[in-house]
Amino acid sequence: METMKSMIPTVSTLIIFALSLAPLPCFAGDFLYLVLQWPGSYCSAKHGCCFPKNGKPANDFTIAGLWPCYLNATIPQFCNSHSHLNLAKASNLTKSLQVNWASLACPSNDGSNLWAHEWQQHGTCSGLNQVDYFESALRLKKQVNLLKTLNNAGIQPNGRFYETGAAVEETIRKAVGYMPGVWCNNDKSGNRQLYQVVVCGDVVGNRIIDCPGIPMGKGECAASIKFPPF
């Protein structure tokens, strides 16, 4: 993926090297990463997928994670090992989570293990309570409306290849207002395909904001990438 100078500030070689050793570094600010995932790319990868117990998810991007990022240039994880997800507190969100944050892991499950893991790993570092954390993710996803944005530009999950920067990234930038991060994975034949899209939200998850930096070390994309069906 082509480097975007507006998103990555100029720093010394030493700092770049140091940050490259940290897992998924960011560069500045106090914000949230919303990571959206195309289920067709998850399922067409070598590991395959299993549909949730409530059936095949809708033909739409799903939430892969909501990650807080802090001024120390890292994405903190597992900040409170004693805070376990209590789904009873978020029972009114269960149906929305099943639609928008579905688990495709095998064996088939109801998604509760995924949500509990995401809360433990990232939610406990967000400064939000459990309900607010999941509501923030759902609210930000709705603001992006990613599949509609791509479809309106003629970028559809039909197995065709699209230009990464000029088509996919630029289309999202025009709709959202800010440059996204685009990550890719491989299908079973080794083709690079649109996998995850990253946008940033303010620290309470009310609105999309300009990303101070996109995490490095994730799946780089080729000049053109496949958008597989689901």
Rank of each mutant, 00 (worst) to 15 (best):
3 T>Q: 09
125 C>M: 10
104 L>N: 02
210 D>E: 13
9 P>C: 01
129 N>Y: 06
40 G>A: 07
25 P>W: 04
193 Q>M: 11
123 G>A: 07
78 F>Q: 09
17 F>K: 15
115 W>D: 00
94 T>H: 07
209 I>G: 03
66 L>K: 06
214 I>Y: 02
37 Q>S: 13
56 K>D: 00
44 S>P: 11
32 L>A: 04
132 D>F: 08
158 N>A: 00
162 Y>A: 04
40 G>N: 07
218 K>A: 06
200 C>L: 12
73 A>G: 01
49 C>T: 09
87 L>M: 14
207 R>A: 04
199 V>D: 01
219 G>C: 03
170 E>Y: 12
27 F>P: 01
174 K>F: 01
104 L>G: 00
120 Q>C: 01
21 L>D: 00
210 D>C: 07
56 K>R: 15
118 E>M: 14
176 V>Y: 02
30 D>I: 03
184 C>G: 05
109 N>G: 06
221 C>A: 11
152 N>K: 13
142 K>W: 02
91 S>V: 01
94 T>R: 13
165 G>L: 06
128 L>T: 08
19 L>A: 01
151 N>D: 09
129 N>Q: 11
114 L>R: 12
7 M>V: 13
11 V>F: 12
158 N>V: 02
151 N>L: 08
218 K>C: 01
163 E>Y: 14
77 Q>L: 03
129 N>F: 03
167 A>D: 13
203 V>A: 08
200 C>I: 08
170 E>F: 10
90 A>K: 08
45 A>R: 15
155 I>L: 14
171 T>H: 07
173 R>I: 03
34 L>W: 09
26 C>Y: 03
43 C>K: 13
226 K>I: 04
128 L>I: 10
45 A>S: 15
168 V>A: 05
71 L>H: 06
128 L>K: 12
179 M>D: 02
142 K>D: 00
46 K>F: 02
108 S>C: 09
13 T>N: 09
77 Q>H: 05
75 I>T: 15
98 Q>E: 12
130 Q>Y: 04
12 S>Y: 05
28 A>G: 04
14 L>C: 02
166 A>Y: 14
152 N>F: 04
119 W>C: 01
188 K>P: 02
3 T>A: 09
60 D>Y: 04
157 P>I: 00
33 Y>L: 10
64 A>N: 14
3 T>K: 15
213 G>C: 04
124 T>Q: 06
229 P>V: 00
106 C>T: 06
124 T>C: 06
110 D>H: 12
48 G>H: 10
165 G>Q: 11
53 K>R: 14
157 P>D: 00
140 L>E: 00
136 S>T: 10
185 N>C: 10
218 K>H: 11
160 R>S: 13
214 I>L: 10
10 T>C: 03
86 N>L: 07
34 L>K: 11
138 L>E: 01
144 V>D: 01
8 I>M: 09
114 L>V: 02
150 L>C: 05
203 V>I: 14
212 P>W: 02
148 K>A: 06
50 C>V: 03
176 V>T: 11
221 C>F: 09
118 E>T: 09
215 P>W: 08
32 L>G: 03
20 S>N: 12
58 A>L: 12
158 N>C: 00
58 A>G: 11
168 V>I: 15
140 L>N: 01
60 D>T: 10
212 P>L: 03
47 H>M: 07
8 I>L: 11
198 V>F: 08
62 T>Y: 03
121 Q>D: 00
34 L>T: 06
115 W>V: 04
218 K>I: 05
69 C>N: 07
207 R>M: 08
185 N>T: 14
